[in-house]
Amino acid sequence: MSKPLLQATNLQCERDGRVLFDDLSLTIMPATLTRVEGPNGAGKTTLLRILAGLNENYSGEVHWLGAPRAAQREMFQRNLLYIGHRTGIKAALTAQENLAALMAGRHAVSAATLRAALAGTGLAGYEDVPCSQLSAGQQRRVALARLLISDEPLWILDEAFTALDTHGVAALERLLSDHAQRGGAVVVTTHHDLEVPGMQRIRLVPDKVAV
């Protein structure tokens, strides 16, 4: 039996005086896909940001590979790929420069790899176009191109399917299940009907939580 990648116990988070979730525990095992569900305002994004280590306004514990995450932040971040609601694309930079910026500080990638990744998300020919001239869906594709060159085992994707066309949605679904099959873990929120065999669901209900 393999070790859980990420383990959260007794998470409790309040926002503007309202309890988003209380006593929430979850385990992210390798080779799984986890979908966080719930209506708007249920705290899906907040939960994902807590799991990614961006939001520190919570009580409870988060463990990475069995040890407290706070003590190994850099190690954890090296193994995490997070794409948020805001995609992290600078409008002034070109698609390739943006992708290079998103990879910066992680692992070395050649320009050829970057271009291949952009081509893999259907952006061939757009490498040197400033992102201000790209559509919302294309900008998201630039951010998602990271998934193609990622070596991080844990993917946390917030509203990953937003603004993508049907082909993009299908390709991303494949990418996520492939990553899970290779032993990685995926945590997503989406309002799109994502159905993958063996998918773990975490349902957030305002004021109470059912797993």
Binding site: A52, G53, L54, E74, M75, Q77, R78, L80, Y82, G84, H85, R86, T87, G88, I89, K90, A91, A101, L102, A104, G105, R106
Partner: peptide
């Protein structure tokens, strides 16, 4: 600007000090 477009989150999540 970086806060608004999300690049700041990615900066904070880089595995660097």
């Amino acid at each position: 600007h970086d806060f608004d477009n999300g690049t700041l989150e990615q900066l904070v999540l880089q595995p660097q000090p």
